[in-house]
């Protein structure tokens, strides 16, 4: 019967559509597998003690390592947190605890706009703001660019986790005569502390691999950074320089650096998983 034939056709169509969707899912996840495969294949063999402890060798001479870039990235992230964490967390507190609906809508909106600013723009802005007036590329400039990027990220996640704290906690504390700001700091923020840390970690994971904002700020350094007012090496910057070079040995080290960077980022993400374990992980 034609009705049944039609039904068969519709069923077949449904099957094909399902098949296409699963193929699409496979295609989306394929790059991840491919990137991992090559990172491990090309990077693992180059991770040796020298890579972690040595400075880069002069151009074209094989050997050396990325010790200064690894430490440099650490310094930049720590300094960036010093800017991004207090501003982001306290700003998030305002959104969650104080702001009126209208002000909040505006602030949230601006924060989302900031999240969309291309990272290269931060480099340009900080170059004009810090590098030119102070006449030096510096660790400060690099971390300021990264710190700026952290602010809207942390602000939004902090707000979200604070809103998850039940209102009853606040009311109970206020009813006991505890002042509002103490209630917020000692009760609300403490309850949500894991979530806040999670937000900070996610922001760190996000900026750890940023290269573009560092090009005209941190600038790179072949040696150890001796003062934060001087240029500083960073892992992503070093990977970029080595990747576009013609030297096989530098390519090898770029892969090793990339493997290390990805491992670090995934470690942070694992930590986040661990922290949000058992809770509806709604932080993204």
């Amino acid at each position: 019967m034609s009705g049944s034939a039609n039904h068969q056709f519709r069923k077949a169509k449904s099957l094909i559509a399902s098949l296409l969707c699963s193929v699409a899912a496979l295609l989306v996840i394929a790059p991840l597998g491919l990137i991992f495969f090559y990172l491990l294949r090309s990077g693992l063999s180059s991770l040796n003690v020298a890579f972690f402890t040595n400075l880069p060798r002069p151009v074209g001479e094989p050997g050396g390592g990325m010790a200064n870039a690894i430490v440099g990235s650490g310094e930049l992230l720590a300094l960036a947190s010093l800017i991004g964490v207090p501003v982001g967390v306290l700003g998030g507190v305002y959104l969650a605890e104080y702001g009126t609906a209208r002000v909040n809508a505006l602030l949230r909106f601006v924060a989302d706009v900031l999240n969309g600013v291309p990272s290269i723009i931060w480099g340009v802005v900080v170059y004009g703001l810090i590098v030119l007036p102070f006449k030096s590329f510096s660790a400060y400039a690099g971390s300021l660019a990264l710190g700026f990027m952290m602010i809207p990220l942390i602000m939004r996640t902090t707000e979200e986790v604070l809103l998850l704290v039940p209102g009853g906690y606040r009311e109970a504390a206020l009813a006991l005569g505890i002042s509002r700001w103490k209630t917020i700091v000692h009760i609300v923020m403490k309850t949500a502390s894991k979530g806040i840390v999670t937000g900070v970690l996610l922001a760190l994971a996000r900026i750890a691999g940023e290269t573009a904002p560092l090009l005209f700020t941190a600038f790179g350094n072949r040696f150890w950074n001796r003062s934060l007012a001087e240029p500083i090496a960073a892992l992503p910057l070093q990977i970029f320089t080595y990747a576009i070079s013609p030297y096989d040995d530098w390519h090898r080290q770029a892969w090793a650096g990339a493997l290390l960077l990805v491992a670090m980022i995934f470690l942070i993400n694992l930590l986040v998983r661990f922290l949000t374990r058992g809770r509806a992980a709604r932080v993204a």
Binding site: E75, A78, F137, N225, S227, L228
Partner: peptide, 21 residues
């Protein structure tokens, strides 16, 4: 903790050596 780490970093990197860029 963060401040501690940072002070360690800063003091660790402060030394007499000069960098010419």
């Amino acid at each position: 903790a963060l401040t501690l780490v940072l002070t360690a970093l800063v003091s660790g990197s402060a030394s007499a050596q000069m960098t010419i860029n």
